[in-house]
Design a protein around this nucleic acid. Structure first.
Lengths: 216, 216
DNA sequence: TCCGTTTTCAAGCGATCGTTTGAAACTATC
DNA sequence: GATAGTTTCAAACGATCGCTTGAAAACGGA
């Protein structure tokens, strides 16, 4: 994406890139195939040719975006579990949040778009979308819940799952950009610059503190 | 809503009630006026007669649902600020979360529907919806941020706003029912009963702990 | 160059969207 | 019972939705 002589990405890749961006911006239901294919500089019929349907495209987008994040999470879980002692709550939170939050910190055209898209999935009402999302992330999350349960043995399974859901929800909120776009301050206040890494550290601290606060 | 001899609510009231329920269940964009009027046992044209448009109905629904919650929050802020010492973080969190969370605990046909609808608004992508929501809740939230800043003087305005947004987000997550519907455990696990009041206490503890965790 | 495959294209399908219409059905007042 | 105002109704409006079509274009190996 530098200058001229730019080799154009394939139609399939452009469709996925536009889907990540628009699904994340406006939501899945509010993104029409016409707007999407126009943004991708592709024909309206190309979605059905390459992915079969809008749902097929969504499935491919979820698969592609979640795979990298989940692989990194798996790797960090491996590292933590092969270490000497059992991982702490803070380490587990970092291992879960950072692979996704790092996408937000990226300024690359893919990075923040992907993060926001993933964040949007978490609050998605449509049960069909939720199912596609769940079957993609389910296995990793299972491993995570087990590790979190070992780090918080005083909490029952129910409360561990509650803490985990809080973490996922806050991460989603962070990734949709709600922390930056929703400004509750008076209108005349200048929109102060919000450095992302600091925000990420705050997020990790908030989640860790919240989890530990539920200990008896 | 007991037995026979039931006096039917007015068309206007039935439309609002159905809107609260369906907007909360499926999301605003995914709820068609035909499905909504059918659920309200009203004619398709009744929405435009009583509210002018779908957006007009949404505006009325947001107004009605948020007014009660915000009035109660204002009342509790008054109580806290008229007390001897400055309110603690935990007290402020309770004063914000409980007026909304109590709706979830309600089993009444209105209670949980209203709570889920409000929760859905928080994650809404459509900027027009966000604006209607913001102009409704803005004033109360301003007062809240000020009180929270006094309770957490070590945090800058930025971090106070961050903590506040985390609280709003978690409350929304709680109210959409995500804590109950998203079950990441293996499929064969029986769906254990989740008593609501305990969940509310956990939520308050999680938020309070998270806010205090960001102190230097 | 030819042929078979893959990909792109403009056009249009039926369905559904939010909204509008004009008349019929109510309700209240005299 | 006539009248004026309010509310409900079936029908249809134009626009847009996801998706399909059949042919044209681009590609690749002989």
């Amino acid at each position: 994406m530098t200058e001229v002589e730019q080799e154009k990405a394939s139609t399939r890749e452009r469709l996925i890139a536009s889907a990540v961006r628009l699904f994340g911006e406006k939501g899945i239901a509010a993104t029409s195939m016409r707007a999407l294919t126009e943004a991708a500089e592709a024909n309206i019929a190309s979605v059905n040719y390459h992915f079969g349907s809008k749902e097929g495209l969504l499935r491919a987008v979820i698969d592609q975006t979640m795979r990298a994040v989940n692989d990194e999470r798996r790797r960090r879980l491996d590292d933590l579990e092969s270490a000497a002692g059992p991982p702490s709550v803070a380490e587990l939170v970092r291992a879960f949040v950072e692979p996704a939050a790092d996408l937000t910190a990226h300024d690359g055209p893919d990075g923040s778009d992907t993060a926001r898209f993933i964040g949007r999935l978490i609050g998605e009402p449509d049960p069909r979308v939720r199912e596609i999302f769940a079957e993609q992330v389910g296995p990793v999350e299972g491993r995570y819940l087990a590790a979190l349960g070992r780090a918080l043995p005083a909490l029952g399974d129910e409360r561990v799952r509650f803490a985990f859901t809080c973490m996922v929800g806050l991460l989603g909120l962070h990734q949709t950009g709600a922390f930056r776009t929703v400004d509750w301050r008076p209108r005349d206040t200048p929109p102060a610059r919000r450095p992302h890494p600091v925000e990420r550290e705050e997020l990790v601290a908030f989640i860790t503190g919240g989890m530990l606060a539920n200990l008896p």
